[in-house]
Design a protein around this nucleic acid. Structure first.
Lengths: 122, 122
DNA sequence: GAATTTGTATCAAACACATGATACAAATTC
DNA sequence: GAATTTGTATCATGTGTTTGATACAAATTC
């Protein structure tokens, strides 16, 4: 159950989101399973050269998504509800969608906008 | 060829992007066709209670996308290259993708991230 | 060709957001 | 139960982005 999180400070996507996304993917991939413990916020923050609040935010968002459970004094652990998914499946779906949409002549930006519209139909 | 553009100031997506997206969709839908003229930036800006530069930015981005052509003193018109697409098609593709991804238990955010990853493979 | 119309460039101000530092709260450890 | 560990709340700071105001440039109109 050893893993690594990396943060690219040059990226436009903020560190807390990079951390959240990477941990989320580790859980989805089943490389972190129910009961596994995430490193303490202070440890991960020190490793990455970030503030504790930054890692804390990533943990909080993962908790809101139901993937981990945090308790003060306790720690942060992967929940039983966080079932692993076949990793290639989502990527394949996304690739199929992108290919089909591009064939329609859709610009990348509008392609993502269409997904967002499908997510939250007014 | 009458149309309407609305801006929701409460939305987190900035006005210039709302304008761009709506006009882009009007063009994709074929409700604005090649040669059709967009309103002058000052007129649209006045209608929406925005600054000319805000509308101007939307026009500039549409031009960069090849959907319109702007000329000082002339105006801004839909290009011949901006071919209309079947409107339901993209929405249907997006809806299918969202449904399939959700069936995998994917969170909305990760669902969009997967598309972005498919767009720009590292 | 002068006046007008129309898009663009510039730049300071406003705004939104993430971060870092610090203090606080709750559970565990001994 | 005291000390330690761990997550959270707060808030000022910094950074990037959007906006608004204004001036400028280019085409059209008369």
């Amino acid at each position: 159950m050893t893993f690594e999180v990396r943060v690219d400070t040059a990226s436009p996507v903020p560190p807390y989101e990079q951390i959240r996304a990477q941990l989320s993917e580790l859980i989805d991939q089943g490389r972190l399973v129910a009961g596994d413990r995430l490193p303490p916020v202070r440890q991960l923050a020190a490793d990455l050269g970030l503030a504790v609040g930054t890692v804390g935010r990533a943990y909080r968002e993962l908790e809101a998504a139901g993937k981990v459970s945090s308790r003060r004094g306790g720690g942060t652990r992967v929940t039983a509800e966080a079932a692993p998914r076949p990793p290639a499946e989502l990527a394949r779906l996304a690739a199929d969608y992108v290919e089909a949409a591009r064939r329609l002549g859709t610009a990348d930006r509008d392609l993502i906008a269409a997904v967002q519209r499908a997510l939250a139909p007014q």
